[in-house]
Design a protein around this nucleic acid. Structure first.
Lengths: 332, 332
DNA sequence: TTGAAAGCGGTACCAG
DNA sequence: CTGGTACCGCTTTCAA
């Protein structure tokens, strides 16, 4: 069913039918109702592809995501989606694995669809992807690390700050032996968080330990914790790279017969909704997903005002959220 | 940058350029490399919209989802996405809220994009949406309840069976006062699960209780549990509509100073990955998300073989998974 | 207020 | 093996 069919049915030209779709005011009332009636009768659905092609614009944002199983990234996506829709944009998401080639392929896909802008919500980026995004000349925003370029904006996280807050808090409780659980392939945000941890614990010299996880999910957290506790190093607190993995850390600690926080304190990072429902509720760092989604949208769609001001860098600050997974270290 | 530009640059016709894109074998090697070189030099991205329009086909599945914050639905989506990509299909997802009007709008959107098929992954459907899907004449599959029609397939869940297994198991442990926690607006799967619970506990007569939650997430589970425990009714076990809410139920029970499973047993439904990392790990019912995603794909894309056999109904069975959140009821 | 027609960026058939 | 060209379904001047 196409425009021409409707036109025939309503005995008008296709131009008129197109007008009632795009600028109903410019069509005489009687004609308009006739056209609308025809549309309704045959359940006409305008072909969005053809419309975009003809208009030469696509009010649609592309997002390349990964790790959507981690609620943190999902919540950013949901936030972005919500604000985008409110502002009249659709959102198309590709959800590739983290492998560089797949990320690039997904980006290409979006570019091919001629999206109005591209948002990267992934735990890691890589040079190939960055290059691809850069020369697409599309408005792009990367949630994570990197340097802004002419068309790429960056939303960076102030991990150094957040991690310092965690460590300072733990020290104030009397913790002095800290372990950090993170993904073994420390790239992107994982890398940044790890560096921030190392930076924040410089004075702990060797009273710190880094436990590597095979995957960045609860399973990885659990396994890293198991190794950690079997290593001989006995931390008074474990800092997890993120809340999602911390869920597994908690489990690992329990498996070992230790209580949180009496025997061992645990902290996460992100403040995902679930962190409040962990047992015990996680002390963590709030990373404002809602804000990130909003900023990402603005960053990519500022071309509205006419003044294209790409290449901005946004810094997101993080606040400590104290719950029940941390306490004074016991006597050990 | 368009096909014509490449053609000019490589000194061939657009037809030839199009051929190297779609059927490289039919182009002489020398010409082909020349064209490819031209494409590479200008970073050419074929316009996917134009291609679909010209080809008259869109190897793309649309999914209308909701409640993606519940890992159960997300895991179905991820499974679908994974198999679809492997089979050469893209997936576009709209993630509206549950309101009927938004669901319909999202469906329209997908239809407008001329997707090859439509998958509904939502906690609830409604007549308006069903009607819309039906007359779209598109291959549709609904994960949930309903009756198959000419173009709509249904993947139904055997909740009666699953719930019976839970109840039978709880009875075998000696439980005799059961509570069911579910969303107050019991429609779609929530309704089905509730009915299944009522059916499975017929013999409990009035030794059962239904606690209504304001939202179908951990917060809702927690709140419903609070009300339940304050109501005077003292269950020996709580069955949660789903795992995601059960996370909140566990918290609610703890808040009340009760231990799981010593004082009170708790079960979930779905066996989301997180249920293993709850504290204690949840006894639940495995609903095979991976299989659902696969079946959904097959259901919607069978038109490949030429024999369109829509309107099928699939039934998914569920297995009990016993973990540590259930035990014999204590003396109360 | 309406219609005719030239695109939008590709595809695919038909000739050569 | 390659080029010319009529579409795909819709938008948007330009005229009437």
């Amino acid at each position: 069913m196409k425009l021409r069919d409707i036109a025939a049915k309503a005995k008008v030209s296709v131009a008129t039918v197109s007008r009632v779709l795009n600028d109903p005011g410019r069509v005489k009332e009687r004609t308009r109702t006739r056209v609308l009636k025809a549309m309704r009768e045959v359940h006409y659905y305008p072909n969005a592809l053809a419309r975009c092609l003809a208009k030469g614009e696509n009010r649609c944002l592309g997002v390349v995501a990964s790790n959507l199983d981690n609620p943190f990234y999902l919540e950013i996506l949901l936030s972005l989606e919500s604000i985008a829709r409110r502002r009249g944009y659709e959102v198309e998401v590709a959800n590739p694995n983290c492998r560089a080639s797949e990320l690039v392929a997904s980006a290409r896909l979006m570019i091919g669809r001629r999206v109005a802008g591209l948002v990267l919500i992934a735990s890691e980026s890589n040079p190939a992807l960055f290059l691809e995004l850069e020369r697409s000349r599309l408005p792009v925003v990367i949630c994570g690390t990197g340097t802004a370029t002419e068309n790429i904006s960056i939303i960076t996280m102030n991990y150094v700050n957040g991690m310092h807050r965690v460590v300072k808090y733990l020290r104030s409780l009397g913790h002095y032996r800290l372990a950090f659980v993170c993904h073994h392939r420390a790239v992107g945000s994982a890398m940044e968080r790890k560096m921030a941890f190392l930076d924040a614990t410089r004075e702990f010299s060797d009273l710190r330990y880094i436990a590597l996880a095979g995957s960045d999910d609860p399973g990885g957290g659990q396994q890293a914790t198991r190794h950690l506790l079997a290593s001989g190093f006995r931390p008074t607190a474990i800092i997890s790279e993120n809340d999602y993995m911390a869920l597994g850390v908690l489990r690992g600690v329990r498996d070992h017969g230790l209580r949180v926080p009496e025997d061992l304190s645990v902290t996460g990072y992100d403040n995902i909704i679930l962190s409040e429902f962990a047992s015990p509720p996680l002390t963590t760092v709030e990373v404002p997903r809602e804000e990130i989604g909003r900023v990402a949208f603005e960053a990519v769609v500022t071309n509205e005002g006419g003044i294209r001001q790409f290449g901005r860098t946004f810094v997101i600050d993080h606040e400590l959220v104290v719950r029940e997974s941390t306490g004074r270290p016991g006597l050990q």
